[in-house]
Design a protein around this nucleic acid. Structure first.
Lengths: 304, 304
DNA sequence: TTGTAGGCGTTATCAA
DNA sequence: TTGATAACGCCTACAA
């Protein structure tokens, strides 16, 4: 017809066609960078299906919609991906498949693909124990589901280590092995991490290693450690969680646990595709195994 | 009719109505956090107009569209906001108003709202000079338009200081005042900042203050400074640019220049609204004045 | 005021 | 195969 730019109207295509070929991705907050990797994974799965992604965070269209989901439903998306813990999800009709990526599905009928936070917490702690640390602190918050899981992983690792120590030297019991958690209320931010670290150092100066529930808390802890004159990793080791870009920065160089967000996205996309293809499929829940990324913030404790 | 969730179909509304009440926001990359503030400002202007924001970065729908703009045009958006420097913008029909936010408008017919990078560079440099620094280094890259502007601001400030020094003590000329720039090729990343800082320290060990073209380069420089045993700010001061969240972190505590991205978004929204209301309006260009945010990474030089 | 036909730009269907 | 035509779900204009 004309080489002078004609474009089919998506509105007309959607109206007339049998499907909209659109899937909605609801983020909690554009500031939480992990969604970038999630989207990468989602694209990989949905690529070639001709599906268009529409993203929105909770704030994007406040004033128009109470939730981005309302907007998605209005545009008749074929599926919805909810990234992170779904706070106040509106009721979503069964006809629209939902998969929660990066959190557990609270919504009935939704599939979920989440990081195995408990295993991640265990990995981080085992790394510190393997380096030879015996007094390990954990910084967390009580408000986050992920934080609670990571703490459970920490406890798992410490308990297992105690059993091993006991088996090796039954006469000594678990003497000399201690794991202490400081869990504050509040968000998992730098400020919370700093406050928790301050408490840990004053109450338990014997710790030589710290596992923070996420990278931001770890960075908060770093400032407190520096203010106490403690060098990382010579005097004290520290591990974070999420493997954020800032953790990889040379100046921070933080050992962290990689959520594998790309893989989560890929799996979430696959799960959604399956349920779009067959709406009678039962919702599924799956866990993605995290991976420890060792950097310069962890080392063996100094000989005492 | 029914309180059992009915939602108007946006497709049908768009098709039947006279307007789509949708505006497209094209980001360069979701990883560049500054768009979050931009969106906040945009929302403020567009709120109450019943306009729906649709965001996409360059990668979101690769495979479907060559550019997010294609998608926007297909959905018949009423206006387009391009965040950052528009690389390869497709031709956009005059009937769709475009405003470039955070960069200069390369596209003909587009309005622009940008940060005054040159003034920002001058502010940063003047701050260091006012503290008493006389040997100031600048870390930059040759590839970024913003970087070039910021460097010009650095040069402005150094030149003005030289004139002042000459007026005060004509016999000494500008002796003792030096500004040296290390501008590498490549992106404004941490790695580039580290490389530039290493070169600066080896070629010009006399510098007591550094102005980095953005926060990431500043953080790269921080690691090099630390490796050289230089304390911040006791031995050397450093200023960044962009006032990213990480600069505000207590562990980094970086003096930086605030782009005022929220204000840029607000102005961009207003500019777009005006052109939507009257399509015959001429495109406008405006600059938003940056603001220096002083933190703990800058201090007066030690007495020598 | 309330009701009804027409049309928005496509896809899909049903004849030819 | 090709071609005409009826939806798609809503808005708008016009008629009652």
């Amino acid at each position: 017809m004309s080489e002078l730019d004609y474009r089919p109207s998506t509105a007309a295509v959607s109206l007339a066609g049998t499907r909209t070929r659109t899937i909605g991705v609801m983020l909690d907050d554009f500031r939480n960078q992990w969604f970038v990797d999630l989207l990468t994974g989602l694209r990989e799965s949905l690529e070639g299906q001709g599906l268009r992604l529409v993203v929105a965070d909770r704030f994007l269209n406040t004033g128009l919609d109470t939730s981005p989901v309302e907007g998605f439903l209005s545009m008749r998306v074929e599926g919805i991906v909810v990234a992170g813990e779904p706070d106040g999800l509106p009721r979503i009709p069964r006809s629209t498949p939902v998969v929660v990526a990066g959190g557990r599905a609270d919504a009935p009928g939704a599939s979920s693909v989440a990081n195995d936070d408990r295993t991640g917490g265990r990995l981080a702690t085992e790394h510190l124990l393997a380096l030879g640390h015996r007094h390990v602190g954990h910084l967390s918050t009580t408000d986050s589901r992920a934080g609670i899981e990571r703490r459970a992983g920490f406890d798992d690792a410490m308990a297992a280590a105690a059993v091993r120590a006991d088996q090796a030297r039954p006469e000594a019991s678990d003497a000399g092995l201690s794991g202490v958690t400081v869990a504050l209320t509040g968000p998992m931010t730098e400020a919370t991490g700093a406050a928790a670290a301050a408490r840990l150092l004053s109450d338990h100066p014997e710790v030589t290693a710290v596992f923070a529930a996420n990278d931001m808390m770890a960075i908060g802890a770093l400032s407190v450690l520096a203010e106490h004159g403690l060098r990382v990793p010579e005097d004290i080791s520290i591990v974070g969680y999420d493997d954020t870009p800032i953790a990889a920065a040379r100046f921070i160089d933080l050992t962290s646990v990689d959520d594998r967000s790309v893989d989560i996205g890929r799996a979430a996309g696959a799960a959604l595709l399956a349920r779009i293809a067959d709406h009678d499929l039962e919702p599924t829940d799956s866990l993605v195994q995290p991976r420890l990324v060792v950097r310069g913030s962890t080392a063996a404790p100094r000989q005492t």
